[in-house]
Amino acid sequence: MTEILTETYKLALPIVLTAFMGYIVWLLKNQKKDRDANSAGTMLLLRVQLIEYHEKWTKRGYVTKHGIENFIEMYDAYHKLGGNGMATQLLAEVKELPIKG
């Protein structure tokens, strides 16, 4: 009886472990897809906001102290997510604006 249980255990354990590892890999892949989608969406929202602020402030002719601080923080987050050089040009132009308030 003990031999049957031992053989069953030896046979079943690798199968169960393989299935469990497959499930873990599947979960990790799905989580990566979700993270990638969230990162892409966040980057898009940051880019839109950077463009809107740039347009608003360049038309107005100045930027506030808090505005430039927020812009730089958004730019840093955008850049860390893999944003392109377009935002770098916007940042350079915003930094040239006079700071009021």
Rank of each mutant, 00 (worst) to 15 (best):
G82H: 01
G83Q: 02
M43I: 09
T42P: 02
K80N: 06
E55V: 00
S39K: 13
K10R: 13
L17T: 11
T88W: 00
I4P: 04
V25R: 02
M1I: 02
E69T: 10
E73N: 13
V16N: 05
L13D: 01
D36Q: 12
A37E: 09
T8D: 07
M86V: 06
I68T: 08
P98L: 01
V16I: 14
E3H: 07
V48C: 07
G67M: 03
E73H: 15
T8I: 07
K80F: 03
E55G: 09
E3K: 05
A87N: 05
I99N: 00
L5R: 07
T42E: 13
T6S: 09
I15Y: 04
D76W: 05
N84A: 10
L91C: 08
G82V: 07
Y62M: 03
E7Q: 11
Y75N: 08
L28M: 14
I72L: 03
V48Y: 06
R47D: 06
K95T: 11
R35H: 05
H66F: 04
A37S: 10
M1G: 06
L27R: 14
K32S: 10
M74S: 14
S39T: 02
G82F: 09
A40W: 01
Y9Q: 05
P14M: 01
G67K: 05
L91H: 00
A19D: 02
Y75D: 09
H54Y: 11
I4G: 03
V25I: 13
L45N: 14
T8G: 10
L17D: 09
A19P: 01
M21D: 07
K100V: 10
M74H: 13
K29G: 05
Q49V: 10
R47N: 07
A40R: 12
R35W: 06
T2V: 12
L27M: 09
P14S: 00
L81A: 04
T6L: 08
L27G: 07
E3Q: 06
N30C: 00
I68S: 10
K95I: 13
A12N: 11
